[in-house]
Design a protein around this nucleic acid. Structure first.
Lengths: 249, 249
DNA sequence: AAGTGGTCTAGACCACAGA
DNA sequence: CTGTGGTCTAGACCACTTT
């Protein structure tokens, strides 16, 4: 109950979700009515409704007017493709890694970077190069490119995911991005940095991140040992239908 | 106008959306405060909030606590990352390709396939092997695995995307899938089939497709020349609020 | 200090499903 | 008929940003 600083509706949401996941509420069973839940949780019905809305979004329950709310799934619907960092992936797999900052300098970008970031000729970008190690073994080299106008401090420590520095510098938030995954043989310098031979391909993951205003603010190129990493994403089947737009009558 | 029967919040939502789409509210401008909107629309603030929530979901506006709500986009945001076939990709890029069916046989799957498809020991899967060519040049080899219980006809021509045969056999529809992208050096037989040397890596794309009931019905492994293909996907930043939270007890 | 969006309450009426 | 979820109101307090 109280004690937690999270909003009430999230606490209620979590409580009901736990009942479902733990098996105290079976798939196919009805939830108590919203009035009943409001009484038993000692909150208003509006708060209960906001909590249940979250469960609906997770695909755990379905509400039918005039009938009630039924449990339709024991586990939350798999989260569909959203932007994740390599850090997120490794964290999920419980793999600890360390990051070493190699350089952080302003420079004129090459044509590929310039095009991805819509940088005018003559414009500069902050290039941050980091190397990631797992158990002191080289894992990946990552090149971050951020347009100068974004205003990221080149003296930052860059120990955290770079998009955090981008978002701290501007009021804009990154809302989506495009990933391009390819593979090739490593260059001699990559072979040296990653401590691999020419026979082991590297996986190249390029990400362009965009703000609300569809403005690219970050271009990240990761060169990853292909024996230590897969790129994994879960996607829905369709662009899914529009919500109730029915202005018509 | 017109005594519409639609809920109030949808009418308000539509009205504001029209102002944005028609250009009466410019991208970058602030919406009136929720209190002001409530007064001018003559509805409660709760109704205004529900209307704005819809606009947020469409990516048209962004609300910042303590600041206000700003118009960030003139048209609803395009839908993100959904399951696409290699065929879709090539079509979008205007690249014509041909498909040759190499084999379609029932067999006992290896452990990896068995695990992905949840096939019991002793169970069989239909394996369909196809090769794709672009301008008569080999492009990719694809191995489809479908559990026998799905009932796909092994005598089909398999000229179309295989998931269509899966959905035709059952009434279930594929609603989501997981892609795993990796890279390695080609095996000798792959070098021969793809007409490449050992120095050119191959991109491996593995897809497991699931029905609404979270049941895997298809496992596809594609071996692709890395010089002719990138795996591309556009993803949103977050599903929205993070339900992870502390979540103990 | 003033103003914003986020949360929350305690009521109310409605359309619809089911006995 | 009763009970359900869906909608709506008119207040309130909060954390936060900006002045």
């Amino acid at each position: 109950m109280s004690g937690s600083s999270a909003p009430l509706y999230q606490q209620v949401s979590a409580a009901i979700r736990d009942q479902i996941v733990s098996g105290h509420r079976n798939v196919g069973s009805m939830l108590p009515t919203e009035h009943t839940l409001a009484r038993s949780f000692k909150v208003s019905r509006a708060t209960i409704r906001k909590a249940i809305r979250g469960l609906k979004d997770e695909g755990l329950v379905r509400a039918t007017p005039g009938v009630g709310t039924v449990v339709v799934r024991k586990r939350p619907q798999k989260r569909f493709g959203y932007l994740r960092t390599i850090n997120d992936d490794l964290d999920d797999r419980g793999i600890p890694s360390t990051i070493e900052l190699l350089s952080a300098t302003f420079r004129e970008p090459n044509d590929a970077v310039r095009e991805h970031l819509h940088v005018e000729p003559g414009g500069r970008v902050l290039e941050v190069v980091r190397i990631r190690r797992i158990a002191s073994q080289p894992f990946s080299i990552t090149y971050f490119h951020v347009p100068e106008w974004v205003g990221v401090d080149p003296e930052a420590d860059f120990k955290r995911p770079v998009h955090e520095y981008v978002e701290r510098a501007r009021r804009h938030f990154i809302t989506y991005g495009t990933d391009r995954v390819s593979a090739r043989s490593p260059t001699p310098s990559e072979q040296e940095m990653l401590e691999i031979g020419e026979a082991l391909p590297v996986l190249i993951v390029r990400r362009t991140s965009f703000t609300d205003y569809d403005q690219p603010v970050e271009f990240v190129e990761s060169v990853i040992r292909s024996d230590l990493f897969d790129y994994v994403v879960t996607l829905p089947r369709k662009p899914d239908a529009d919500p109730t737009e029915g202005g018509q009558s």
